[in-house]
Design a protein around this nucleic acid. Structure first.
Lengths: 299, 299
DNA sequence: CGCGTTTACGCCTCACGTAAACATC
DNA sequence: GATGTTTACGTGAGGCGTAAACGCG
């Protein structure tokens, strides 16, 4: 039994399949497979049931997993006890929405680089639903996602709230920017694809208003959406701070609606059984640097 | 950092020198040395100070040792969590005096074999002083020794007491076997070499009696001593049970003395920082099988 | 047939022991 | 010179990736 085998087992058990675990370990799938077989031989117990389409933990494997995790953790602690660098090290794959990426992500990276120079924080930008899947799959270590996860294996730490406001260019909503239902019939709603956290509050709002929207202009980039809104290609919503900032510049008008869009609660999510030491540090850094949704420099 | 490296470090730090640690690990000294260098490279800290005649732990090494020990322990626990054999396994080198070896050691081995069939208990017979040294050196895992250890790194568990009685053949002490000081002047005392626990109580007794013994017949084997006593080559003492047994057979006489020989308290000793899981099991087995000093079959 | 895992194979690193060298007392 | 540790070196096992094969949906 070696630490490498335990590491392989931990990730193979945690990730969606061997290929993903292998990728996380910078290893070929075949080598990972062999390591796992060797571990099983060394402990004399089958840890994975390979009869089905994909390998799944046996009951022995389930029992083994927490032991393996604890052992790896204390190995890390032991390593660090001698590293004498008080800071953390390692690789943390962080999922964030584009909104976060455009706003406080640079601050987060600066913060962690300063406090934990050996911690390699690798951001991965995607919409919330995909981030959630990747997190469960083991492709990501943690992710900042709108809303709390309902998945039992995921724990969510609330880190902040963002308010959104409807906006449109003066050419679309008029100089006074008064709310009229007709606006939503005549102009497409420029929005992110389904699966983004912001799309959910849009749907809730539409449901509350009992509005039927003839067509949406779907774009997967907030930067592009802002540009489309400014260009008058539809109406949409932006973080309130962005909206006010752009309104001050005169390129957009804020549309007052009743009710207003529900605020979005962002959480830092991680797998429940992932107790690696960088997780609390990440949370601390996120909380320290996440005053939310300040307008990106490009606006 | 691998488990093998940690194991190498643990034993190198625990044993008197690298050669002994290597022997315990079934490894050549050179391989052990290389493993240690690799460990030091992997953690980036020198763990041994090699400037002197022998390698000695650096402060970093001292700090590291408990971590390494804990890690190895939880590795063992992890292994056992899957081995599903409730019993222990491994190799335990047990030091015992010859008196123990001749009496309850077979019972101890039978007991452990029955309760922990995978635990290889390897007895090493020698006099108490040598056992103590070997235990401190790391050549032994535990030892049954007369008296408590005064060494701070050794813990002693009391396991029983043995009483001794002076004996002599009828041809030496007479049919009535009455105590006379002259006996000790005219006949050599047949005894173990210095360093055996029993020799200590002899010296204490002689000091209390203020007796000067002209010469001792030193022999390193209790079986031979019993034979010498029976053969009338001197007087000596045996465990009380042996003495009575041999007296019943008529080959020896028990000599009543005032004061009587002090009883000898036996303890199971182990290194303080050795928390391997077989240690409590060994203690339990020793306590279960050590009703002391029943006469060996050969008498 | 796609996806996930294992097997086959060649490559190369790494860990071992023997033996010699080195260092300290 | 005795003891303790490291270096040199030849050997063999083991871990790696590529690519092909297998097996389940």
């Amino acid at each position: 039994m070696t630490l490498k085998q335990l590491e392989a087992f931990y990730w193979a058990a945690t990730c969606a399949n061997f290929a993903m675990a292998a990728e996380r370990l910078h290893l070929s799938t075949s080598s990972l497979s062999k390591r796992l077989v060797e571990l099983e031989e060394s402990v004399g117990v089958r840890l994975f049931d390979r009869t089905g389409h994909k390998a799944v933990l046996t009951v022995a494997g389930e029992r083994f997993l927490p032991h393996a995790g604890a052992l790896l953790q204390s190995a890390e602690a032991t390593r660090r006890a001698l590293g004498q660098d008080t800071g953390l090290s390692g690789r943390c794959l962080l999922g964030v929405g584009e909104l976060c990426a455009l706003t406080w992500l640079p601050r987060l990276l600066a913060h962690t680089r300063q406090h934990h120079p050996d911690l390699r924080l690798e951001p991965h930008v995607d919409i919330g639903r995909v981030l959630g899947e990747r997190l469960r799959n083991g492709e990501l270590d943690c992710a900042v996602i709108a809303g709390r996860s309902s998945h039992p294996s995921i724990v969510s730490h609330t880190i902040g709230q963002t308010h959104f406001a409807w906006v449109g260019s003066p050419s679309v909503v008029g100089r006074k920017a008064e709310y009229r239902e007709k606006l939503f019939e005549e102009h497409p709603i420029v929005t992110l694809p389904t699966g983004a956290g912001t799309t959910k509050i849009l749907d809730e709002w539409l449901m509350a208003k009992n509005l039927d929207v003839p067509h949406r202009l779907i774009c997967n980039s907030w930067g592009a959406i802002a540009g489309l809104l400014i260009g008058g290609l539809g109406i949409g919503f932006l973080p309130e701070i962005w909206a006010r900032s752009l309104a001050r510049k005169g390129v957009l008008r804020v549309l007052r609606t009743e009710p207003s869009l529900a605020p979005l609660t962002y959480t830092l999510q991680r797998r429940r059984n992932d107790d690696r030491s960088f997780q609390p540090a990440i949370l601390a850094s996120v909380l320290a640097s996440a005053d939310f949704m300040t307008p990106p420099r490009l606006l």
